[in-house]
Nucleic acid binder design. Sequence first.
DNA 1: GCTGGCACTCACCCGTGCTGAGTGCCAATG
DNA 2: CATTGGCACTCAGCACGGGTGAGTGCCAGC
Lengths: 337, 337
Amino acid sequence: MSEERRQAVLQAIVEGYVSTSEPVGSQALARSKSLGVSPATIRNDMTILEEEGLITQPHTSAGRVPTDKGYRFFVDHLAARALREPHGNAIRTFLSDAVDLNDVVERSVRLLSQLTRQVAVVQYPSVRDAAIQRVELVRMSQARALAVVISADARVEQAAVEIGPDATDEQIARAAAEINIEACGLRPTAAGAALEAWAARPGQPSWAGPLAVAIAEAAHGGVVEKAVFAGTANLARAGRDLDSVDIGSVLDALEEQVVLLRLLHEMSTEGEVSVRIGAETGNEALARTSLVAAGYARGEGPGAVIGALGPTRMDYAATMAAVSAVSRYLSTVIESE
Amino acid sequence: MSEERRQAVLQAIVEGYVSTSEPVGSQALARSKSLGVSPATIRNDMTILEEEGLITQPHTSAGRVPTDKGYRFFVDHLAARALREPHGNAIRTFLSDAVDLNDVVERSVRLLSQLTRQVAVVQYPSVRDAAIQRVELVRMSQARALAVVISADARVEQAAVEIGPDATDEQIARAAAEINIEACGLRPTAAGAALEAWAARPGQPSWAGPLAVAIAEAAHGGVVEKAVFAGTANLARAGRDLDSVDIGSVLDALEEQVVLLRLLHEMSTEGEVSVRIGAETGNEALARTSLVAAGYARGEGPGAVIGALGPTRMDYAATMAAVSAVSRYLSTVIESE
DNA sequence: GCTGGCACTCACCCGTGCTGAGTGCCAATG
DNA sequence: CATTGGCACTCAGCACGGGTGAGTGCCAGC
């Protein structure tokens, strides 16, 4: 009883179930796939696979279905199928038509949802490290000013600051000029330190401190992490895999963002393409879905993450290929800017 | 056979069906509601209501269900039920905690989805009319500059412009200074005209024209209209009203945006609270849903629209009350900024 | 260790019959 | 003449039951 054939059986079960969405039986397997053995032999293998917890039967006298663990084994050992990337050039040109970062992200998420036919998720880079290009300070009302921070990566962030009614226009103009001298060309962290020192100088107005903090924060891209998604309709089309309760809780989890962001964050450090299957997501709402994610580079460190979310019964090979391809092209497009 | 009682029957049918989600029959009606007549009488009324196309039966020997036209009549004539606004103050404080326009919109859409238990939609103001406060011009690369337009309503828009590799930093600085002189304090339309004149002056670099256009466009809030939504999970919870195909196509329509935006735009001119029921949405994908919308003022003209989208079998009175309340508070919060 | 054979299980399908909520029609009533 | 009670009829929904077939586990034989 070769270990090898047993894996082939598992692979056939996964592939069969993914394509037909019906439990696969020994006879059907022997007939369609080229395993070259009889149904009885396959049954023996199945018994062992079931003991190992890799497959299960929905009810007695039904075919077998992969468990989360079975999918996991498949992904880890068997899905090294040729990661063809048919749309390479199409992806690239589609993404490079984008005008700014927002547009790139927007396009990526749509593209990925179409390629995978799953829900696509793109996390915005959380900590950004581009140098500050310019800071603008505009009084909006008697007691309030708006700080606009323009980064070298064509990003524009804004922050409202209370300055109190006593601030003079002259003070504001001087502060703006000084801030630009202090902070321009610096990365957010360094700029933050420089502005802190600036605010501590004698003679500065009382709102200099909060202003310095707000600018540094804005330069970091704001504190908030954010993810956008597309293709939620694919959830509804998942058919038997997800009932409407599942769909509801998944949509909730997506809107909640925090769960998803934590998950994406965890996965970002796990090498090329990372997969979370069913309960591995650690979240009740996502227990019947899988998430395939890949980080996309941004400057040096691994910046943010893109991913595809779908029912556990998904085509992992194809999804992983698509996620990987889009992340790679996304990286080159962003870096070439 | 009083016209009045027949309307009461229609009202009772709508309310009964909305609360139980099951077709309502004559006996059940006579027993539960206080119409003071016998089932037979109600049946007579029902026959007429059915002839008028206001109600229908899913199959022979089942109760009656309102048609789109029935809901329409109900909304137009019978839903003037006390629009209690229980959460008035809560809404107000919740919204006024917001820091900027984005945040206000974000909060509104979440709030509305929770109040109505439907999908909430908030359209960003499409044509904006706030004066330009300041324009900033920053060179991003050899051939590209970023124009940042800050409006008096604390909005920051950006636009990338190709300036060609020959532009000198001095040219850019002079253009920025001149643009601020020309355009500051003007509304977008006037500013566009002023900038056009500016770009036409002799001696201007070749990129002055495109730049002027880009700035004017950005000041208008960009050409793109945008809507955000929340509470999509409520669709999945709609139970029998929407099957998964419906949910899928609704989610598609939401992501598509263009259909939804056109619809919202149409509805924005229709007075206080406007309702589109089922096929009235004019869209196949939304044929089994209704949209309740209200414009929220922005400056003078009707600016943008918020709305709630749900199955045609929804509690119109409550939804209309919530949409109306949120739009009203949203208006005051925005205008007080 | 693989295979064919065999008895067994059980979800699924389909036809049957019953029940009850609901209807339409009609004659009687105030 | 609108309203009502009575009555026959319809039909979705449900429970019951038998037949079918894909699938299984086990075992003896190669």
